[in-house]
């Protein structure tokens, strides 16, 4: 579940902790790598990714149940057999 932080890249600036309205990072300590306490409350608005100054330090993984359904040219073919 989103978000995910790479502790090796995170510079502990707290920006993501400060901006998250849902407070997914509740309980994070100042100037420490944020903790992701309430991942189920993430609304995937990407705010944390946008404010993070370090590319790749934080990203969102979209939960499987919200994966988009789309059609490719082979989707309507009957399965073999």
């Amino acid at each position: 579940m989103p978000p995910i932080i790479n502790p090796d890249l995170c510079i502990k600036c707290d920006r993501c902790v400060n901006i998250c309205t849902e407070d997914v990072f509740f309980g994070s300590k100042k100037h420490e790598t944020p903790v992701i306490t309430y991942p189920r409350e993430c609304v995937h608005f990407n705010g944390c990714v946008d404010v993070c100054p370090v590319p790749g330090a934080i990203w969102l993984r979209y939960p499987m149940p919200s994966m988009i359904v789309y059609r490719t040219s082979s989707d309507y073919r009957a399965p073999p057999g």
Partner: peptide, 23 residues
Amino acid sequence: EGNVSLVDHMDAEGIDPRKHPIE
């Protein structure tokens, strides 16, 4: 529109609206 995550998700899954109708 506020839908950066939609664009990201489509990119990550290889969904291209020029080729793929979206349900």
